[in-house]
């Protein structure tokens, strides 16, 4: 089972690859759109990549609830 730190760092790698985000900026309190400048379509790409990386299903209706990196970490931790 991955720790929250490991999930955050994994998300950092994904965010760097699909949206060009500096992984050093990725922290639990950061908002995907407001702080990391991830647009709505890149967010979908992040979700798809996270599903694969963490072996978790993130349904369409859940994506809008993932406002911050911490929201995503919590969801992945609970559902992986």
């Amino acid at each position: 089972m991955a720790t929250r730190e490991e999930i955050t760092s994994g998300l950092g790698e994904i965010l760097e690859e699909v949206a060009g985000v500096n992984p050093d900026d990725v922290a639990e309190g950061k908002s995907f759109t407001d702080d990391l400048d991830v647009d709505s379509l890149s967010m979908v790409e992040v979700v798809v990549a996270a599903e694969e990386k963490f072996g978790v299903k993130i349904p369409d209706n859940e994506v809008q609830n993932l406002k911050t990196v911490g929201d995503a970490v919590t969801y992945i931790e609970a559902n992986a």
Partner: peptide, 12 residues
């Protein structure tokens, strides 16, 4: 349209 859902369907 629900852009995110269409985008996800189309790309995956």
């Amino acid at each position: 349209q629900e852009g995110q859902i269409v985008f996800r369907w189309a790309t995956t």
